[in-house]
């Protein structure tokens, strides 16, 4: 990529910053009226400790599952827990029938490929060089994901795990195929997973998706499907 020719002010800004930082500022703590003599020592503000303050999540699968389904319901994420590959196919075919999909978009993957192969529609495979206008005409985008976060009901995707950036954002329905074992407890766990999985080489896009696209910009009334998918479905195939 050729560099745009324009001198920037990197050195100037860094100089200003260093000049300003010569005088230290006090660490925040805040004075209080408690007439208390000592301030308690606090755990360091790092990833490992965030859990002590964030909303609580139990460690076992069942409580996490009930938490995640609660969030899914609250945020209007549809979901299904399927026992077998055939059930998964039936689940998706049922969606196709009820929504009358004529064109679907997908990326290849262990979970997606067999399901897509079973569908009788026009299919757009998202791979290098795809035409975004083709994608625009699809009723659904089918992807996999990196993780499901119990605490928030979020789906973690990356440009590597979910067929790039556009597939999960443009079609009006985003269908995610995943395994229950992909569930992690909370956001700290999700970030630990990112460090482990991609620490050496991050995808250019990572996103937490929590429910279908929404807006509250008109009188703060929630409307689904502002720009991104109007519908979000998670189909989980038991391990």
């Amino acid at each position: 990529m050729e560099a745009t020719v324009m001198n920037d002010s990197k050195d100037l800004i860094l100089r200003r910053i260093r000049e300003a930082l010569k005088t230290p500022a006090p660490v925040p703590g805040g004075h209080d009226y408690s007439h208390a003599e000592t301030t308690p020592s606090r755990p360091k503000p790092e990833l490992d400790n965030f859990r002590q303050w964030l909303p609580k999540v139990e460690n076992d699968f069942n409580s996490q599952w009930s938490l995640v389904t609660k969030s899914f319901n609250a945020l209007k994420t549809d979901f299904g827990l399927l026992d077998s590959p055939t059930q998964l196919i039936d689940f998706v075919q049922e969606l196709q029938r009820s929504e009358n999909w004529k064109r679907i978009a997908f990326h290849r993957g262990a979970l997606v490929t067999p399901v897509v192969d079973s569908l009788q529609t026009e299919k757009i495979e998202i791979k290098s060089g795809y035409d975004c206008q083709d994608l625009e005409k699809c009723e659904v985008g089918i992807t996999e994901c990196d993780a499901i976060i119990a605490q928030t009901g979020s789906i973690l995707i990356t440009s590597r795990s979910a067929g790039g950036r556009g597939l999960s954002a443009l079609p009006p329905h985003h269908l995610i195929l995943a395994r229950p074992s992909q569930m992690v407890s909370d956001l700290p766990a999700a970030y630990e997973l990112l460090y482990q999985r991609y620490g050496k080489d991050y995808p250019s896009m990572i996103s937490f998706i929590t429910g279908p696209s929404r807006t509250g910009d008109i009188e703060r009334i929630v409307v689904l499907g502002a720009h991104g998918p109007k519908k979000l479905t998670v189909a989980l195939l038991k391990d």
Partner: peptide, 13 residues
């Protein structure tokens, strides 16, 4: 609790 999309971008394609 969290907004609908939180996206981290680390470069061009």
């Amino acid at each position: 609790q969290i907004t609908c999309y939180n996206t981290m971008i680390g470069g061009p394609r």
